[in-house]
Design a protein around this nucleic acid. Sequence first.
RNA 1: GCCCCUAUAGCUCAACUGGCAGAGCAGCGGACUCUUAAUCCGAAGGUUCUAGGUUCGAUUCCUAGUGGGGGCACCA
Length: 482
Amino acid sequence: MEDELLAQRREKLDRLRSDGIDPFPHAFPGVEAIAAVRAAHQGLADGEETEVSHRVAGRIAARRGQGKMAFIDLVDRSGRIQLQARLDVLGAETHERLLNLDLGDLIGIDGTAFMSRRGELTLRVDGFTVLAKSLRPPPDKHHGLHDVETRYRQRELDLIANEESREVFVNRARIISAIRRALDDDGFVEVETPTLVSLYGGALAKPFTTHFNALHQDMYLRIATELYLKRLIVGGLERVYELGKNFRNEGLSPRHNPEFTMIEWYEAYADYLDETRRVEEVVCAAARAVDYQGELQLFEPWKRITLRDAILEQTGIDVLEHRERDALAAVIDAHPTHRIPTKDRTWPQLVDDLLGEFVEPTLQQPTFLMDYPVELSPFAKRHREIDGLTERFEAYICGIEIANAFTELNDPDDQRARFEAQVRYAGEGDEEAQPYDESYVRALEHGMPPTGGVGVGIDRLTMILTGRDTIREVILFPALRD
RNA sequence: GCCCCUAUAGCUCAACUGGCAGAGCAGCGGACUCUUAAUCCGAAGGUUCUAGGUUCGAUUCCUAGUGGGGGCACCA
């Protein structure tokens, strides 16, 4: 059956060639976007004709009628427009050739604009050019393409068939542009640091490993850009950002893809409180870029609450009142309703568990959770008032973590001690503990100014701003099994 | 890695407690000069994901595998 459909299209291809028509010409200059054509004829009355000619190009999406007159829907990146093919305008041979084209074929046309009696802006085709013959049948013209596996594996078909999918990726691009613009306009310098690294760091995650043949050396794909960027702060660039892919060798989920896009920025002389405001500013810029109209109060100042108060609110447990692991575990075990497994969990892990279980799901409106335990934050500066905490926040929207930020740790001796602690955790079997990065500590020894730094997950932010509930909907080619 | 769900025509979906696998769209032949999910007539189109098993008989039940989805674990 499929073979038959392909053979029929092949035959039409051969027929074009035998008629002396190149089915794959090199270019088609002078094309207007369909949206521009539409804009040029706003306010035309039903049935009103014009003398205005337009050249448009795109893919044949639908066809109605087959006789002396037919309508064809043409789609380009900017929209859809109806074409009218008339025997009396085109002549028998050209008319038949136009109607013999298949759904999915790419054509360019010159046509005269008029408004149909039913009020649809239409181009009467005066001439057309085949721009590329399509040799495979397109998805259903009305139902589109629903099968998620096909949509992800053959994203081109998804984009052809589903306009809302095209919109998501256009909006993703707008979000990225807006974020860059917001930072560029405030004096930030965009930089590029290595993706292929001999030492991974800057986050707690498992890396992908590869091998560099020339150097006979195992290498990693970066898990974060953090450490390189802060070396640039040491170097005096003062305001830097990098927007690019990170790679983490972990499970897939609706919120996780092994390669994902992150922006990290760092600014000298700022702390994490300054960064809350910059996160608001950057996210608002992105939201404006996609004309966000949803329920989230992105444009108001976001809620700020300490991690301790948030857990206290949701569970009645004050983690700072129970600073010992056993004490906290006992309180959790004795809790009437909010109980979680406590066996073999350390104090910071228990805090993290309480957060994930009882706090995160409640953080629907934009919220900054402030002040995390030092054990979970090897690159964050110690809290200026509260022992055992760091100046760190995570920003949540729709229960999803979208940003992570610190007042950066710039004391090289403290940083060295943190690395040593990480090495101990690794020795105890923690696969995500940080390897010791001597060149980073050495850079800090030259002096890093007080600095605020932020990482924002672009894919997750795009999910939120486009209303998608899985990360695969905002990544063109999400990771799938072969 | 574990648990659950799922796979039918090119696309979107049906098929009761096991009984010859159907429809719409697309495609093919025909009618049609304002249609728009165009309409009308006609003829087609299937290794029901794969490999086994149970059964007189399997799309349907069982086992295993593969892909996909969800959850757990891990994480952003």
